[in-house]
């Protein structure tokens, strides 16, 4: 049995738990607790969410990375041995983009990790389009994908894109070193 791991990261409230819940075939192990601060939602993940998907003779594990920076000691540990990372940002919450960029810059400067950016909440208006988020983050447009994390077909798209990037060995990072 082959086991594979993909990490879902992003700021608090980006939709990580929702995406894992949507994609997972098994019961998702959640570590959500009542939020102690006003973060825009009642529950927040304090350790990691975990779900899995069985495909023929292999199992894909999905790990949700806690968005709060005080858990940054876990970020690199979670990425250890992973195939890649899907970072989610809420398209209707531009105030979170700075934090997403900060987290992305930290992770890509420290780990050799293929990634895609999933721009969630594409079903609400107003919302930033994926290419606009790509411009903000200084990434090529093909690195960002719009999605609705509650819809299975849509939630699958960033996963497929990430795997395509890993397979093709794409090196699309342009703006910095």
């Amino acid at each position: 049995m082959e086991t594979l791991k993909i990490v879902v990261s992003g700021p608090v409230g980006a939709g990580k738990t929702t995406l894992i819940r949507t994609l997972s075939e098994t019961e998702v192990v959640e570590t959500d607790v009542a939020a102690a601060e006003a973060i825009g939602k009642e529950q927040t993940t304090v350790a990691m969410d975990y779900g899995s998907l069985r495909l023929e003779d292999r199992t894909l594990y999905l790990f949700g990375m806690p968005g709060q920076e005080r858990f940054d000691f876990m970020w690199e540990l979670l990425l250890e041995g992973s195939l890649g990372m899907i970072m989610l940002v809420r398209g209707d919450k531009p105030q979170d983009f700075v934090q997403a960029r900060r987290q992305l810059e930290y992770l890509v400067s420290r780990r050799d990790i293929p990634f895609v950016i999933g721009v969630t909440r594409q079903d609400v208006q107003p919302v930033w389009a994926p290419n606009e988020v790509a411009a903000f983050l200084g990434l090529p447009e093909e690195r960002t994908i719009g999605l609705v994390a509650t819809e299975a077909k849509s939630a699958l798209v960033p996963l497929l894109r990430l795997l395509e990037i890993v397979v093709s060995g794409e090196k699309p990072l342009s703006r910095s070193g």
Binding site: E2, L4, L55, E56, R58, L60, L83, G84, E105, V108, S109, R110, R111, D112, I113, P114, L156, L159, L160, L163, E164, V166, V167, G169, K171, L173, S176, G177
Partner: peptide, 23 residues
Amino acid sequence: IARRKQTTKPEQKGAAARLLSAL
């Protein structure tokens, strides 16, 4: 930002290809 060079290992590429195909 000193981005780490993305050097996907052959076994990772193979695993990703099999997963992509299965999905």
